[in-house]
Simulated assay, not measured.
Amino acid sequence: MTAPELADWRTYDAPTLPRVLDAALRCFAEQGYHGTSIRDLASEAGLSVPGVYHHHKSKQEILVALVMAVMDELLGRSEAALASAPEDPSAQFDALVESLLRFHMFRRQQAFVASTEIRSLAPESRRQYVDRRDEQQRMLDRVVVAGADAGVFGTPYPLDAARAVATLCVGVASWYREDGPLDPDELVARHLVLARGLVQG
């Protein structure tokens, strides 16, 4: 997904993954990559085993397609958030942090599978995935460094602060629940306070 396709980056509808990838997401989240067979995937997708192989050559190819789709959405939303913000580091920081928070609230299962099954990717695919993950981190790094250089942020360690902010946002996926005490807007507001504290120094 590109930024123009995600102009409304705060809005989350049900994921629209292709049939096999949608089934893989559920299976890998519940059973893990190695605990899931092609037969399991076929059953979950309502397909025959040959039907799965018609779409993908292997279970590894399915995993790669799934985690790359997750990263495409994450990066697309981050790019759209930055594009929607005024060109000052503080506003861009808030937009990017909010986007990361909302993604890890509303795409918890996707974030979980992508982060835990990196171990199951073949070396070249793992490198490609890590490159995309690093691209997301560099997006945040650039905003925090720009803010520190402009005196907007007081941290003497902008790259360390940016990593800490990313960790804060990603961690939401491990505990957020729709029926919890905070609604999404309240959670974003509180975590923006925490994230700003990390870059103020």
Rank of each mutant, 00 (worst) to 15 (best):
M1L: 06
A3C: 13
E5S: 12
T11V: 15
T11F: 07
T11M: 05
Y12P: 13
P15M: 11
L17G: 11
P18Q: 14
V20L: 09
L21F: 15
L25G: 09
R26E: 13
A29R: 15
E30V: 09
Y33T: 07
T36P: 00
R39Q: 12
L41T: 09
L41H: 05
G46C: 05
V49I: 15
P50C: 04
P50F: 06
V52N: 00
Y53D: 12
S58I: 07
S58T: 11
I62N: 01
L63H: 03
L66A: 02
V67W: 04
M68I: 01
V70T: 11
D72Y: 08
L75T: 11
G76L: 07
G76P: 00
S78D: 09
S78F: 06
E79N: 14
L82S: 06
A83C: 15
S84E: 03
A85N: 04
P89Q: 11
S90W: 05
D94T: 01
L96S: 03
E98V: 00
E98L: 05
F103W: 15
F103L: 10
H104I: 14
H104Y: 14
F106W: 13
R108P: 02
R108C: 14
Q109A: 08
Q110C: 07
T116N: 15
E117W: 10
I118P: 00
R119A: 13
S120A: 15
P123K: 08
P123E: 07
E124V: 07
R126K: 10
R126G: 06
V130Q: 09
D131R: 05
R133L: 07
R133W: 05
E135L: 04
Q137M: 13
R138K: 07
V143E: 02
V143N: 03
V144W: 06
G147T: 04
A148K: 09
A148Y: 00
D149L: 13
A150H: 13
G151Q: 09
G151D: 10
G151L: 03
V152W: 01
V152G: 00
F153D: 03
P156V: 07
Y157N: 09
L159V: 11
A162K: 04
V165M: 05
V165N: 04
C169H: 13
V170E: 14
V172E: 08
A173R: 15
S174H: 10
Y176L: 12
Y176K: 08
E178T: 12
G180W: 04
P181M: 12
L182A: 12
D183E: 09
P184W: 01
E186Q: 12
E186R: 11
V188G: 02
R190K: 05
L192M: 02
L194M: 11
A195N: 00
R196K: 01
G197D: 01
G197M: 02
G201F: 04
G201T: 10
